[in-house]
C-alpha cells in the first residue's frame, strides 16, 4: 500500500488530510500530522501536497545515527520511538520535506501509509494504492 498524490491541482487547501492524520492518535489539532499542504508561493498559485514516497533506499533511515528508523521491505520506514533521540538528522536528510516534526514531543513524524488522509480528502487529491510499483516506473 502506498499513498499517492494523484492530482494536486484539485487541492483546495482545506487541510482536512492534515487534521485526519493528526487525529489518528485520538487528539485534535495539528501536532501529529505526517502530511503537509502548503501554498505554492501564495494562495493564488494553488498547493503543494507533501507526502512520504516510502523510498526504497530511504535517506532518512541512512541519516539516523541510532537506527531508530527501520526500513520496511515494501519501502519506507517505521519509527522506533524508544530509540529516537530527536536529533532531527532524518528531517534534514529528506529533500521532499516529508519527515514532519512534533514540536511537543521533539520527535519526527513518519507516515505509515495508512491512507486516513485520503479517506478524508473530499476533492480526490489523494489515494492509497495497492501494488504501485509498475505505475511508479511509468511516471
Amino acid at each position: 500500500m502506498k499513498l499517492k498524490v494523484i492530482d494536486a491541482q484539485r487541492c483546495v487547501g482545506c487541510q482536512l488530510c492534515m487534521f485526519a492524520c493528526s487525529r489518528r492518535s485520538g487528539v485534535a489539532g495539528l501536532s501529529n500530522s505526517c502530511i503537509g499542504v502548503r501554498s505554492a508561493g501564495g494562495m493564488s498559485k494553488g498547493f503543494t501536497v507533501i507526502v512520504c514516497r516510502s523510498c526504497k533506499n530511504p535517506p532518512c533511515a541512512r541519516a539516523c545515527p541510532v537506527d531508530a528508523l527501520e526500513m520496511r521491505p515494501e519501502g519506507g520506514v517505521r519509527l522506533k520511538a524508544e530509540k529516537c533521540i530527536g536529533c532531527g538528522a532524518c528531517r534534514n536528510a529528506c529533500i521532499l520535506k516529508a519527515v514532519f516534526w512534533n514540536h511537543e514531543t521533539q520527535k519526527p513524524l513518519i507516515c505509515v501509509q495508512c491512507g486516513i488522509c485520503a479517506k478524508y480528502c473530499p476533492h480526490g487529491v489523494l489515494e492509497l494504492r495497492k501494488g504501485l510499483e509498475k505505475e511508479e516506473v511509468r511516471s
Binding site: 482536512l16 493528526s22 487525529r23 485520538g26 487528539v27 485534535a28 489539532g29 495539528l30 501536532s31 501529529n32 500530522s33 514540536h103 511537543e104 478524508y120
Partner: peptide, 21 residues
C-alpha cells in the same frame, strides 16, 4: 503554531467528527 488538543472521549469525538464531515 502546531499543537494538539486533548479530547476526553476519543470515540465520541471521532463519531461526531464523521457525522459532521
Amino acid at each position: 503554531g502546531e499543537r494538539s488538543i486533548p479530547v476526553e472521549d476519543k470515540k465520541k469525538y471521532r463519531d461526531l467528527y464523521d457525522q459532521i464531515f
